[in-house]
Design a protein around this nucleic acid. Structure first.
Lengths: 144, 144
DNA sequence: GCTTGTTAGTTACAAAAGCAACTATCAGGT
DNA sequence: ACCTGATAGTTGCTTTTGTAACTAACAAGC
């Protein structure tokens, strides 16, 4: 028996974070997967365009900290679903603006609604105080 | 402009959890990947055996909430690294006890040490108060 | 002791993610 | 104008994960 044996995985922060993140996103992923056949990255791209308006793949990649190949494939998938279109960019021939089309906007609004619902449910489970505290701590962790 | 446009992804809990979990486990994963060529599930299996002693694949699967196919593959990988061996189970021919071998135990102790180090670093970044609070909230979330 | 249903674990195939190489465009210096 | 290096995005290949089907062993009822 060494003193290391006392180490507890079940209170190891990376482990806890993983379990929580897994549980939470599985629950929400079921929504956009079932309703629109979307993958997680597709939902994130959709969200960025819906929330912040037209932007390039690179912009989304930077903002969401997601690798450009994942963005590229998500954009193609959303394009095939007729959720967005590519618009030529005057100054730069390398990239295009990505713009939501009406079906994409509708899906965006619907999913925002579902996300709010999901968040409200979390708050009921955890209590408003604790839910807020958790968010704050996670933000702090990201920014530290 | 609908009211849904006000929804912020960057303070959506599942999103925050994902970012945090990703950042944290990438950092720790680098350690067991570089030192022992292990994958995340392998580390979890190793941990369970090191911490709780011999147990079956099913036991680990239940305890860690990881699907049995992932456990099966992780066990094989650890077996090939000579980190564990399979021991026949008298009463039940379907499953085997998984037992760490000396190299596995050594890796376990080393990784426990690294994990403590990692946790300590997090506490320095977040402050002891907040680090503890975060853990408590994540535990509460899991158990609610 | 023979069916029926369950459990542990593995395997095979498909979906997704990671990574490196590639094309095309741009920007700056000479 | 031309070279050099950087940037945006895509494609191909490999690794990892997810899912479902499968084998083998057990358990319970008849």
């Amino acid at each position: 028996m060494t003193e290391d044996d006392g180490f507890e995985l079940s209170s190891f922060t990376p482990y806890l974070l993983n379990q929580a993140a897994e549980a939470q996103s599985v629950a929400f992923a079921a929504i956009y997967r079932n309703r629109y056949g979307m993958l997680r990255t597709e939902w994130r791209v959709l969200f960025h365009l819906g929330r912040y308006g037209p932007m390039t793949a690179k912009d989304i990649s930077t903002s969401a900290l997601v690798h450009k190949t994942k963005i590229s494939r998500a954009v193609r998938a959303l394009e095939q679903k007729r959720f967005l279109k590519r618009v030529e960019r005057p100054g730069d021939g390398r990239s295009e603006y990505l713009v939501l089309r009406p079906p994409g906007e509708e899906a965006f609004r619907d999913l925002c609604h579902a996300a709010r619902e999901h968040e409200a449910q979390l708050e009921r489970r955890l209590g408003q105080q604790d839910a807020r505290m958790l968010r704050q701590l996670l933000v702090k962790l990201r920014e530290t």
